[in-house]
Every structure is written in C-alpha cells, then in structure tokens.
Design a protein around this nucleic acid. Sequence first.
DNA 1: ATTGAATGATACCATTTTAGTATCATTTTG
DNA 2: CAAAATGATACTAAAATGGTATCATTCAAT
Lengths: 133, 133
Amino acid sequence: MKLLTRNTDYAIRAVCYIAGNKKELISAKELVGALKIPRPFLRKILQRLNKSGIVRSYKGLGGGFKLALPVNKIFLTDIIEAFQGPFVLNECSFRKALCPNKKICPLKKRIDKIEGYVTAQLKSITISELLKG
Amino acid sequence: MKLLTRNTDYAIRAVCYIAGNKKELISAKELVGALKIPRPFLRKILQRLNKSGIVRSYKGLGGGFKLALPVNKIFLTDIIEAFQGPFVLNECSFRKALCPNKKICPLKKRIDKIEGYVTAQLKSITISELLKG
DNA sequence: ATTGAATGATACCATTTTAGTATCATTTTG
DNA sequence: CAAAATGATACTAAAATGGTATCATTCAAT
C-alpha cells in the first residue's frame, strides 16, 4: 500500500528543491535537470501545485515557480491532498448501503481512530522539517 | 486511499459470517446467499482464505468451509496480508535508487513511525472483537 | 461404481487508477 | 516581434483491481 503516489512524491521533491534554493524563481527546466523527472509530467505536477496554492507561477521569459507560503506553513497533507484528494482511509464499502452484515461495522470505528492518528501525524510534518533532515 | 480493498472487505465479511454461525461447515452457496457477493468472485476469495490458512476447506457433498483458528487468533492483519500483501506504507521511491535528493529522506523515518502505529493497531483487532460489536 | 454436490486451479476479461506524452494557447521580457 | 517560459487539455500506456468462465478433483450417498 502506498501512502504517497508518484505524483505526490515528485511534488514533494520539487517543493523541497524550490524551497532550498536561493533564487527567486525556479523554472521547470531547472527542476527537470535537478530531479530527473520527465519534463511533461513534471510540468503537469507544477501546474497542479500552482492551482492548489502551494506554489506560485510566473509566465514569460525568466519566469518560473516559487513557494506561495513560508516553508513552515506547507504541510505534507497539503501536498497529499492536492494530488490524492482528501485523506481518508475509510473508503471501504461499509459506508455505502452495500453491507448487509452489521456485525462488521465496529471496524469503522477502529479505522476512524487509526485515520485520526495518521492525519494528525501527517499534518505535523512541514516542508521546513524535511529540509532540516 | 483505501486501507481495505474490496477483496479484503468481502473476505472479512465471509470470515465473520462463518465465525458467527453454529454449523460446522458453511458452503460457498450459503455465503453467496447471505452476503450478496458474486459467486465466482467469492469462491476465489474463499480459496485464497484457505491457502492462507485462515479457513479450512472440505470438498465433496456437504463440504464447505470453517475457520482454521479460534476467532481470537485471527487478526485483521492476517486477512489484509492474504489479499493485499505485507502491510507497508513505505513503498515510495525513497527506498529505490531513484531519489537523488537526500533532503527528503527524513520523510522515511516519519512514515516508518506512522506505519508502526497502524500495524500495531491492526494487529490488535481480531475477528472476535468484530463479532462483539 | 456412479452421480451430484461441493471445492481447486487457472486463464481470461473489464474497469479504474496511475503514470506519462503531446500539442497548442497564452503571457511576459527583451 | 521573437523567444522563453507557463496554462490548458486531450490523449495513450501500464498496472492494479474487480470480476467471469471453465474444467478438474474430491467425497458422500445411493
């Protein structure tokens, strides 16, 4: 089971690269060179980061991307949600009318508890921390 | 993100049904009727439960399935692993040589910690508990 | 022994999700 | 205007998941 898809993984790296760089703006070109991610794929990722308000883009010659927020205000969950949608572990059939066997439902409570812990943990991780490591 | 795939979900229901029943053996036919799961699909699931040693099968007329272990010895992780493989959240690219950016690696530690908690929780849930609910 | 009710094994197909590509439009600086 | 950048979007490929179909094997009852 993957907690992070490739999208998300690449996005985190891109954000970290941008964050750890002195230049005001980083172009997709530079990121491709640095991160070895296929260019058109990375471009799509950057566009989504822009739309989600994690990064801000600037068009035209000399354009590129910079962070839209300080590093300690960008949480791992922000990036995960941008690429994988809201974080829920509970998308099993128990929610839908599918389950005729009520005996199993206590499972939902347990999973909710786990989900609570995981999201709390993920929310506690910021880009700032990842840069320190 | 789904913690449980449909396979696993169905398997849990089947195991619970078998567990909560007085008869020695439960046939696939009965389970199909009770759980409304497509028959050939459920059969495949039962076969896997058998191979994983969670259930024991008996062929021939009057045959069927029964639990291979007492209800308090069957853990949720057993069923998850039978259908989804070993539970690891860490299958991101950081493990492979793919990651040229060492800055991100602290993430692995954090994820390991989360994974530890989740597996511990899942290991603490047995079929016995689900039946009580 | 034969029959019929059950599971075992296995190969196949469909759908969905993820990963990745390609192309053209738009903006901005020089 | 030209070149360098991003925006939008549609398409394709590969993998995982969900599900079907078929034939072989076992076993109990008669």
